[in-house]
């Protein structure tokens, strides 16, 4: 599958990445090359093969319902680029 400029724009939008206009064609080429490479897999017969969910062959372990974290806003907010009291602050969200 060949990736177009539009597909690059769509993927960039999905991934929230600003891509400069002049880079879009180059990226389309690069992404097409990668996809072309991975599409070799089409030749492999995977009928009746289950997808691998875990290389360790294990299933989920659960924890007890105990409160043993939180109540440490400073540990959570220490690296905030912008904060107001104990809130993170971001540019206005328009709903």
């Amino acid at each position: 599958m060949s990736i177009t400029r539009e597909t690059v724009e769509q993927a960039a939008r999905l991934a929230r990445l600003t891509v400069a206009d002049e880079d879009k064609d180059r990226l389309a080429g690069e992404l097409s090359a990668i996809l072309g490479f991975v599409e070799q897999l089409d030749e492999i017969n995977t009928d009746n093969v289950e997808p691998l969910t875990s290389v360790v062959g294990a299933t989920a372990r659960m924890r007890k319902d105990e409160v043993n974290a939180g109540d440490y806003p400073e540990r959570v907010l220490a690296n905030a680029p912008d904060r107001v009291t104990d809130f993170y602050a971001v540019p206005k969200v328009v709903e």
Partner: peptide
């Protein structure tokens, strides 16, 4: 996560690192 589910706590207090 092990953070509490209590309602009405001060902002970002019921927050674990995860």
């Amino acid at each position: 996560s092990g953070a509490s589910t209590t309602f009405g706590k001060a902002p970002n207090h019921n927050v674990a690192l995860v």
